[in-house]
């Protein structure tokens, strides 16, 4: 894919391609995330001005944050994923780059417990403030709450 080549050329080792994907998708390590994202947004070559979607996911051996960026001129979508450690899911917040990240990161924090370093107001959004645990995690048990 043309987009993939351009990305490889610009970022080299910082990214790797996601296998078996229908749309262009890349892996980025969490250390490089902010640098790559800033380049994707600001550099004319990529021009991904819109953060269309941000979500977290909990899998058996790891957690990940999935970002979808959109180029408003040609409406191309790019998926950026970053892998997190299940025991300490923490990643840099993108709220400095996109206003739209603020509310979406709050949701990922609320439901999955992913901490976004540098977020201006990281508190729960859907569940009440005194809620214990993170409801969308695989190890979350509803019964534990009911038994109390």
């Amino acid at each position: 894919m043309e987009m993939m080549d351009k990305l490889q050329k610009r970022f080299g080792d910082m990214i790797s391609e996601v296998e078996e994907s229908i749309q262009p998708a890349i892996w980025v390590t969490k250390e490089n995330l902010l640098r790559v994202m800033e380049a994707l947004k600001e550099e004319d070559e990529f021009n991904f001005k819109l953060l269309a979607d941000l979500t977290g996911a909990d899998y058996e051996d790891h957690m990940e944050v999935v970002y979808h960026l959109m180029n408003l001129d040609n409406c191309q979508l790019l998926r950026v994923k970053t892998k997190l450690d299940k025991n300490n899911p923490e990643v840099d917040s993108l709220s400095k780059l996109w206003k739209a990240a603020v509310i979406q990161e709050r949701e990922a924090y609320d439901l999955l417990g992913i901490k976004f370093a540098g977020h201006p107001n990281l508190k729960r959004i859907l569940c009440p403030d005194d809620f214990e645990g993170h409801a969308l995690r695989k190890d979350f048990k509803l019964n534990q709450r009911a038994a109390k």
């Binding site: 749309q23 979607d53 979500t55 899998y59 979808h68 979508l77 998926r79």
Partner: peptide
């Protein structure tokens, strides 16, 4: 197994679905 994103224009604006499957009959995310 695979993952995809689909978009449509709902009456209120752009609606985005992000779906990931693992080959079983239930979506993974």
């Amino acid at each position: 197994a695979g993952e995809a994103i689909a978009k449509s224009e709902a009456p209120r604006g752009e609606l985005i679905y992000y779906l990931r499957t693992n080959g079983s009959d239930k979506p993974e995310r």
